[in-house]
Design a protein around this nucleic acid. Structure first.
Lengths: 207, 207
DNA sequence: TTGTCATCTGAACGCTCGTTCGAATGCCTC
DNA sequence: GAGGCATTCGAACGAGCGTTCAGATGACAA
């Protein structure tokens, strides 16, 4: 099948492009850079892709779809809210660690997209955030009112998870399992001894 | 003094440039854009600045210096490790919220710098991270061994704090005080009822 | 008035960019 | 061998980029 061969070559182009985008940034990367990295001639790139923008869109869109699909499968049949939250986090971090270049492009080049491309990715993003906030609502229903604004907490969690493209090395000594545990524990429990009571928290009486 | 007038005009150029960089991104912004935004002619920009790169460097460098100076002053004479951590977080978030454009440029355009400029900012960054990790070491000394790798915890905290440029509105209904409290509590304590015991955490017995 | 110096500018330079186009190549079918 | 189609490419185009330069402007000193 010719169709499959073409798709496969597009995939490898997207993979090569993601690496270069992650390394140099989208705007600093030229189509000539991508030609060199993918082994396709400059003009040849346009047989697989309509524009540089579409290339970025395809990287972001496909990987985001994969994250969302992974999440849906990870949550399937799981009822306990905390377990659902834990799986949401693990899925996000596991995919991130397994596709660092692509996820860095998704996290860092969010504003590089324009027009319809931007809107389509943003719609996925909104749905994904909504999924997390639904889980947080369930958590609150089971465990009582939260100690934080739900929306704020959601974005702080995304901050912990998405910022990892600036420092995390999946091949380093800090494994993804430890990362997932730590993020989950930090979100739900804390850094020092878990039983930190309200009164022990600072800010209450300090200027 | 003529010197002071010049410095003042450079300041206002940097401030205008930070807004445009924050809005469009560094590489997408042209010197012609900056000329328009600052009210200086294209060639006139080069009377105040050697290059577009230096412009970015000055924004990052000066604001980072301000963050660090604020931190040193906030920690002065404070002994309690948890209070020190709380002040470190508050200083970072307060400055971020008060200078969203500049801090977005500092967070998001970290890799846009090159050569000496990059190295100088990175050195500040390393020292700043070291400051946080020193505080974490003090916290551990006082409150016993932590439940997370120290370096990992530090970067997760920076993730929560730096990611806010993607979602936080200082003029919205979520005040900076609440933000600081939440980040501090999430780092130290947690989202649902603080006494979440080890056993209650998922991951242990779930696939 | 003349000269000096900081401040500012219009116009241009050389370069790289994303994209296009006409043509070449390789492969399959008849 | 001929025709058709998917694939690939060298060369070029127009546009925009960061930067430079020779010179204008205006304030102040002599």
């Amino acid at each position: 099948m010719a169709h499959a061969a073409r798709d496969q070559k597009l995939d490898s182009l997207l993979s090569a492009a993601a690496k270069v985008f992650a390394h140099q940034g989208f705007h600093r990367t030229s189509m000539r850079d991508l030609a060199k990295a993918s082994g396709i001639s400059l003009a040849g790139l346009y047989y697989y892709v309509q524009s540089k923008d579409e290339l970025l869109y395809l990287i972001q869109s496909r990987n985001f779809d994969a994250v969302i699909a992974g999440m849906e499968s990870a949550l399937e049949g799981v009822a306990d809210p905390i377990e659902r939250l834990s799986r949401f986090i693990d899925n996000h971090l596991d995919y991130f660690a397994a596709h660092m270049a692509e996820m860095k492009v998704l996290s860092h080049e969010a504003e590089a997209l324009e027009g319809d491309y931007l809107e389509q990715v943003n719609e996925k993003k909104r749905a994904y955030v909504r999924s997390l906030m639904d889980i947080l609502a369930e958590v609150e229903k089971t465990h009582g009112p939260a100690h934080a604004n739900r929306r704020m907490a959601a974005y702080l969690l995304f901050g912990m998870m998405n910022w990892i493209y600036t420092w995390y090395d999946p091949l380093g000594d800090l494994g993804v399992e430890l990362l997932g545990q730590t993020v989950c524990r930090m979100f739900l429990g804390g850094y020092i001894g878990l039983p930190v009571s309200e009164a022990a928290l600072p800010r209450a009486g300090a200027g």
